[in-house]
Design a protein around this nucleic acid. Structure first.
Length: 826
DNA sequence: AGCACGCCGACT
DNA sequence: GTCGGCGTGCTC
């Protein structure tokens, strides 16, 4: 400790509290001079404790008098680059979150959770006299004898156990306090399977009993492809059980071997190298617009507005090749849901092992490995979901956001960033090209393109001149009048039948899972509501339960109304399970695959179901949201949307936009290959513009109309929006504090703003917490006012003294044209 | 967020 | 008298 000369590091400490959200100065010991860099993760003494922090600046003179020293540098290479540190400050300001929270969101989880603190029984503890210990200490020891060990946090849950007691017990050798590091082992054991005698596979198959269907399937697979394959891949590819393979190994037809290898999710897969495909004139023009800023090495953003099937991916691939030729790197963001093996394969096939893939299916350690390849410059392309925008490259030339309108680019937890905003910041920082690709861009993106902030490139043709599917609206009010009270219109039934009779496939889309949407008593009119959330419960037929889709609450379907004991309690509305049942009744023999959260929650189920459908094992694919995008099956010639208005009436200013996007995206699933496609849209709101414009393939018309409405109602992108959400376990306290906060805001918000609320949030109670919402609107393009709002909101947050009150702020309609670099961080 | 310090009630 | 409850305030 001392004040003498030397280098000083500014450190953001790993304490996500408002009081500690600022850099602290530490002396850098001479022996660490070369190791400590901006972005380094370090251990520092902080008050009476030792904590982790990130170096955000290095300077010569300290701000405070007495300085402590950095104790340790934790990694070989700093996990953050100076650019990402700067970005952290930007995000903290922009999204009103703690700097440490922003920085932590940029690195893989294994680096932040760093270690779990564990309390273990000391080996000597068994032989010691316990009588002198306090009651709480004894009860903890009893627990440890049973469990062996427990997490530090759990130990503290014992009455009377606190940190000082634990430390004392550790000094007296009753327990061991241990810091356990996360799984950062880079080796993995994988079993490989191969045929023993490839030439005898046919004979082997013949020798099996007729009942060994699965075994024969495996042998036939190897006949076609007599190479070795990793066991997990074999299982997921064929959907067979491990035991099936084991039987074949024991019978001597196959052999397997366990090998230790460096974890690489794709190492054992073979990729056919692909060459660039020739581009159509339209595609070439788009390619040229992207490549121009890359060659000039200056920032530019491009909205690539291309109809479904217009070949955007090939353009991305060729633009990336250009970037790599310059020795720069590319980041590709795709929505998690479309980060399918097919998608990844396309990139891997073109660029081989120069690609790192970051998706949620990876284990913590695998993710860390991929991330490290980026950090160490071993790869040139990073492809992944939202958080891949933080890929620690140093020389980015191109950032691509595919399906840029997707709501999954917005993070729902703190920091509540939008990957699009972060991408813009990084692209500006690097002088890179930013490509926003979509068939149905977000309204704000279209508007800012119209205002000239993005180059707007349209792709209006599908590759190989395939026609757009014919789209048809069926007005369900009309059906009702004709006496058809089922969920299928006559048109849909007709088309479904003829589609299946031609031997082709259909996709049916319904945005609600479960069997019915709500359960109501016909006697008293009360609906069943989740006891924790104030949301109607959904009936699930398979196990006769009612479930809350928000918190997971489930109970048996009651036999009588809990309010009036009447037996006349019934479910209403339509979910995927009910459609499935109805299909089975009306079309006996029809083979249906249902895909929703309930059928795809098991690992690999998603892929297996899609593979089954793709290989013709079903006539109909019935599903929710998750089947809307990215699917490409040549045999699909009919798409049916069972209730197009299911999301139209939600209390969300983006409801119309979402409906238009959804209809356009699902319609893109039909007739992508040689056979022409047809789309049937059932709705009770047949004349709504979002549905009409989608059916007419008139996106310009939709954006025009939607812009007018957004402007009229004062919504983004024509107004800026802060959405405040307050939640509290007690309704009365919440109401009172909501009123107080509104009064404070009313007094302190800058001029030119409007405060709306507080009103109950769209979900008024969630997981036993009541919720209130407030909106602050401010004029467009007015970043001065936005900045003043942020100051006011920070002050508001400082005034909260109720530990039970949770307060979160969402931002919308951030203005695009302002140069982020002139703002915020120092 | 932790953790120490400090100030009041109920126990040997 | 002291053990232990949790309010208050600080962390380079």
């Amino acid at each position: 400790m001392g004040t003498d000369a030397g280098l000083i590091a500014e450190v953001i400490v790993d304490v996500p509290a408002k009081a500690t959200d600022r850099p602290y100065d530490y002396r850098i010991p001479t022996e660490l001079f070369t190791e400590v860099q901006i972005g380094s993760r370090v251990k520092v003494p902080f008050g009476p404790q030792k904590r982790i922090g990130y170096v955000v600046n290095i300077k010569e003179r300290p701000a405070a008098g007495r300085l402590k020293s950095i104790q340790e540098v934790m990694d070989f290479a700093p996990p953050l680059t100076p650019e990402l540190v700067q970005l952290g400050f930007f995000m903290a300001n922009e999204y009103l979150c703690r700097t440490i929270t922003a920085l932590q969101s940029m690195i893989p989880a294994v680096l932040k959770g760093t270690y779990q603190k564990i309390v273990r029984l000391h080996p000597e503890a068994g032989r010691k006299e316990e009588t002198l210990l306090s009651l709480s200490a004894k009860s903890l020891l009893v627990h440890l004898r049973e469990q062996g060990e427990c997490a530090w946090e759990d130990a503290l849950r014992f009455a009377g156990v606190d940190a000082s007691l634990l430390r004392q017990l550790s000094e007296e050798k009753w327990v061991v306090l241990e810091e356990r590091v996360g799984d950062r082992v880079t080796k993995q054991k994988v079993i490989f399977v191969r045929p023993k005698k490839p030439e005898e596979l046919a004979n082997a198959a013949a020798s099996l009993s007729a009942r060994a269907v699965r075994q024969k399937e495996v042998l036939r697979f190897f006949e076609k492809r007599p190479r070795e394959i990793a066991l997990p891949d074999l299982l997921s590819e064929l959907g067979v059980a491990r035991s099936t393979v084991k039987t074949l190994v024991e019978a001597g037809f196959l052999e397997w071997e366990e090998r230790e290898l460096y974890r690489d999710p794709f190492a054992h897969r073979q990729f056919e190298r692909t060459a660039p495909l020739p581009l159509t004139p339209e595609q070439y023009q788009a390619f040229a617009s992207i490549v121009a800023p890359i060659r000039e090495r200056c920032f530019r953003s491009i909205l690539l507005h291309g109809v479904t099937g217009s070949g955007k991916t090939e353009i991305y691939l060729q633009a990336i090749a250009e970037v790599m030729q310059q020795g720069r790197e590319a980041i590709v963001l795709v929505p998690e849901i479309s980060l399918t093996p097919q998608m990844v394969d396309r990139f891997k096939s073109r660029f081989g092992d120069l690609v790192a893939v970051l998706h949620s299916g990876l284990s913590g350690g695998e993710r860390y490995d991929e991330w490290r390849k980026i950090r160490l410059g071993k790869v040139k392309v990073a492809i992944g979901a939202r958080s891949a925008i933080f890929a620690p490259f140093q020389n980015v030339g191109l950032i691509i956001i595919d399906e840029e309108h997707e709501s999954s680019y917005k993070q729902e937890e703190n920091p509540k960033y939008h990957a699009r905003d972060v991408a813009l910041w990084r692209a500006q920082h690097h002088g890179a090209a930013l490509v926003l690709g979509s068939a149905t861009p977000a309204v704000e993106t279209v508007v800012s393109a119209q205002q000239g902030w993005h180059e707007w490139v349209q792709l209006k043709e599908r590759v190989k001149g395939r026609p757009f599917p014919q789209m048809e609206i069926v007005d369900m009010r009309e059906e009702l009048r004709k006496g058809n009270r089922t969920m299928f219109s006559e048109r849909l039934k007709e088309e479904l039948l003829s589609c299946v009779n031609r031997g082709e496939q259909a996709v049916l889309f319904l945005n609600r899972r479960g069997f019915s949407t709500f359960v109501m008593c016909r006697e008293c009119g009360e609906a069943l509501v989740c006891p924790h959330c104030d949301i109607s419960l959904t009936y699930h037929q398979t196990n006769r339960t009612v479930r809350c889709h928000y918190c997971g609450f489930a109970q048996r379907m009651p036999g009588a109304c809990p309010h009036c004991q009447s037996k006349h309690i019934r479910h209403f509305g339509t979910g995927t399970q009910r459609v499935e049942e109805e299909l089975a009744r009306r079309f006996p023999g029809l083979r249906v695959i249902r895909m929703d959260v309930d059928t795809t929650s098991r690992k690999g189920a998603h892929e297996r179901l899609l593979n089954a459908f793709g290989s013709g094992k079903a006539d109909v694919l019935l599903g929710t949201q998750m089947i809307a995008k990215g699917l490409d099956f040549p045999q699909v010639t009919l798409v049916g949307v069972i209730a197009a208005d299911s999301m139209l009436h939600l209390p969300d200013f983006r409801a119309a936009e979402r409906t238009f996007q959804l209809l356009t995206q699902v319609s893109g699933r039909a007739g992508r290959h040689e056979k022409p496609g047809r789309v049937i849209i059932q709705t009770y709101s047949a004349d709504h513009y979002s549905i009409e414009r989608a059916v007419e393939h008139d996106s310009d018309g939709f954006y025009r109309q939607e812009s007018i409405i957004r402007k009229q109602h004062g919504y983004p992108p024509f107004y800026g929006l802060f959405t405040l959400l307050l939640s509290h376990p007690d309704r009365v306290s919440l109401m009172r504090q909501g009123q107080e906060m509104a009064r404070f805001l009313g007094k302190n918000l800058p001029k030119r703003t409007r405060l709306l609320g507080p009103v109950p949030a769209p979900i008024p109670r969630l997981k036993d917490r009541y919720r209130l919402q407030m909106l602050i609107k401010y004029p467009p393009l007015d970043e001065v006012t936005a900045e003043k709002c942020k100051i006011c909101l920070r002050e508001l947050e400082m005034r909260i003294d109720d530990g039970d009150l949770r307060f979160s702020i969402d931002r919308d309609g951030i203005v695009w044209e302002r140069s982020f670099h002139e703002n915020g961080h120092s």
